[in-house]
Amino acid sequence: MLVAAGCGWRPLYERPSASPTSGGAGAALAQISIDPVVPKSGLGPLISGSTDSLYDSRAAQLLQNYLKNALNPYGPPNTALYHLAIELQQELRAAVSLDNGQSTREDLVMTAEYQLNDAKGEPVMKDVASIVTSYDILREPFSDLSSRRDAQQRAAQELAQGIQTRLAVFLKK
């Protein structure tokens, strides 16, 4: 501990006092207003006949909620110093296939392109975060749907944690 303290290293989420507004990365993150997450998808389900845009909307909602809990646990800032804009994209890939071409395991790839803008709307940070989660396909409709939803929830939560960490590091520099 003494060696780490001697080199100037400090914990990322350190606060000078017990008050949540006393400073540190948590207080800096609380000054970010989160714009609605925009899903990148094709045509809507009524036009294309696909339910994929419903999954995209749900993933965007999940990511939005996880980010609100991570960045603004005490509510949105009254006067935000920053605005976070996010575009979210999902992709399904066959991870394991049988000889007949049927998938038995799929990867859900969730990618977020995000930009942190200052109060004037000028970009101060732009980055991309991506998460891959896998789930089994059992050829049972309910269990397949449950597996896909669970993978989507896990991916959104991990993506929010990754974005939170990157923003905290950026703001504490």
Rank of each mutant, 00 (worst) to 15 (best):
M1L: 08
V3S: 07
A4Y: 14
G6C: 09
G8S: 04
Y13G: 04
E14M: 10
R15V: 15
S19E: 06
T21Q: 11
S22H: 07
G23R: 09
L29R: 03
A30P: 15
I34T: 07
K40A: 07
S41L: 05
L46V: 13
L46R: 08
L46S: 04
I47G: 01
S48L: 03
G49K: 03
S50Y: 06
L54V: 13
L54C: 02
Y55K: 08
Y55T: 13
S57F: 13
A60E: 01
N65F: 12
Y66H: 10
N69A: 12
N72C: 04
P73R: 05
Y74I: 09
G75L: 07
N78Q: 11
L84N: 03
L84H: 07
A85Q: 09
I86Y: 03
I86P: 12
E87V: 14
R93C: 01
D99R: 10
Q102S: 09
S103N: 12
L108Q: 00
V109T: 09
V109F: 05
M110V: 15
T111V: 14
A112Y: 12
E113G: 09
E113H: 14
A119P: 15
K120S: 09
K120A: 07
K126W: 07
K126Q: 14
V128C: 01
A129Q: 09
I131G: 00
L138C: 06
L138P: 11
L145G: 03
L145S: 11
S146P: 04
S146K: 07
S146D: 08
R148T: 14
R149K: 11
D150K: 09
D150H: 11
D150M: 08
R154Y: 01
Q157M: 10
L159N: 04
L159M: 06
A160R: 07
T165D: 00
A168D: 02
A168I: 10
